[in-house]
Write a protein that binds this DNA or RNA. Structure first.
Length: 236
DNA sequence: GGCATTTGACCGTC
DNA sequence: GACGGTCAAATGCC
C-alpha cells in the first residue's frame, strides 16, 4: 500500500496512492504553533464539475479567503473551523481544484479539530460555496455514508484505526502502544458514494533506509491526536 | 440580527 | 518584489 515515504529528523511525509500525509515535528524548532500542527493532504474526485459534495468532510468549515495561485488554473480556497473562536479549534484546510482534472480536488488539512462538533445541521449557504452538503437528485440531503468496504470491516469511522506494532517487544513499538486509537477526521466523508477518495490511509509500513531508529516500523497510522504523534516524532 | 461568503488589502516569508 | 496566507469590511441569505 505504501508508495513512498520521505522522512528526516524534522519531517515525515507519507505518499500513499496519491494521498500525502506529512507531520512537522514539534521538535523542529518552528516559530509558531501553527507550523507544529499536523498537515496532510488528500485528493478527492467528484462525478461532475458541479459536484462539490466530497468537500463536506463532516465538519463545519467557514471560508475565510480565496487566492489565485501562481501557475494554477483554479483559485485556492481557505477554510477554518467554524468553532475556531468559540472552542479554540484551529483546524483549517485548503481546497484547490487540480489543474489537469477539474473533477479532482486537492484538499490540504492543517491541524486537528479540538471542537467536538460535526456539521450535522445543514450549512446556511449549502447551495453555494465549496462545502455544500451533498444532495440527492431530488434535493434531499444525503445522510452520512461510510465506504462500503470499510463498513464491512466494522469500522464505523473508516479512518479510525488501532495501533498495530509489528513487534511488541521492540524498543520502537513499546513507545507506540498497541490499542492507541485516534481518528483521522478529514477522511470521514459523508459523500463517499459521490466521490472517490483517491488516497486512503489504512496501514502504513514505514521502513527507513537512512535511520536505524526507523527500521521496519509497522503500524496503523492515526491522525487525530497529533500531540501523541509529535511526542513520538523522534522516530522520524 | 446573526452568520455566512466574497474579495481587496495587508502581512510574513523567501 | 513576488507569492501565499490571513484579515476584515462589505454584502447576501435565512
Amino acid at each position: 500500500m505504501q508508495e513512498e515515504v520521505r522522512a528526516n529528523k524534522n519531517l515525515v511525509v507519507f505518499v500513499i496512492h496519491g494521498c500525502t500525509i506529512s507531520f512537522v515535528s514539534i521538535k523542529n524548532g518552528c516559530d509558531t504553533c501553527r507550523k507544529a500542527l499536523p498537515k496532510w493532504s488528500t485528493q478527492v474526485r467528484v462525478n461532475s464539475v458541479q459536484d462539490v459534495g466530497p468537500l463536506d468532510d463532516g465538519f463545519s468549515w467557514r471560508k475565510y479567503g480565496q487566492k489565485d495561485i501562481l501557475g494554477a488554473k483554479y483559485p485556492r480556497a481557505y477554510f477554518r473551523c467554524t468553532y475556531r473562536h468559540t472552542q479554540s479549534c484551529h483546524a483549517s484546510k485548503q481546497v484547490q481544484r487540480a489543474d489537469g482534472d477539474p473533477l479532482l480536488f486537492d484538499v490540504v488539512y492543517h491541524g486537528n479539530h479540538t471542537c467536538a462538533q460535526r456539521s450535522s445541521q445543514r450549512p446556511r449557504h449549502a447551495a453555494s460555496g465549496e462545502h455544500s452538503q451533498p444532495q440527492t437528485a431530488d434535493g434531499q440531503e444525503r445522510s452520512s455514508i461510510v465506504s462500503p468496504g470499510l463498513k464491512a470491516e466494522g469500522l464505523e469511522n473508516p479512518f479510525s484505526f488501532q495501533c498495530k506494532p509489528a513487534d511488541a517487544g521492540s524498543a520502537a513499538s513499546s513507545d507506540f502502544p498497541a490499542g492507541y486509537a485516534i481518528t483521522a477526521s478529514p477522511f470521514v466523508s459523508p459523500a463517499m458514494s459521490e466521490c472517490q477518495v483517491v488516497g486512503n490511509v489504512l496501514d502504513v509500513e514505514l521502513t527507513s533506509t537512512t535511520d536505524s531508529q526507523m527500521a521496519d516500523m509497522d503500524f496503523m497510522l492515526q491522525l487525530a491526536d497529533p500531540d501523541y504523534f509529535l511526542d513520538n516524532s523522534r522516530y522520524f
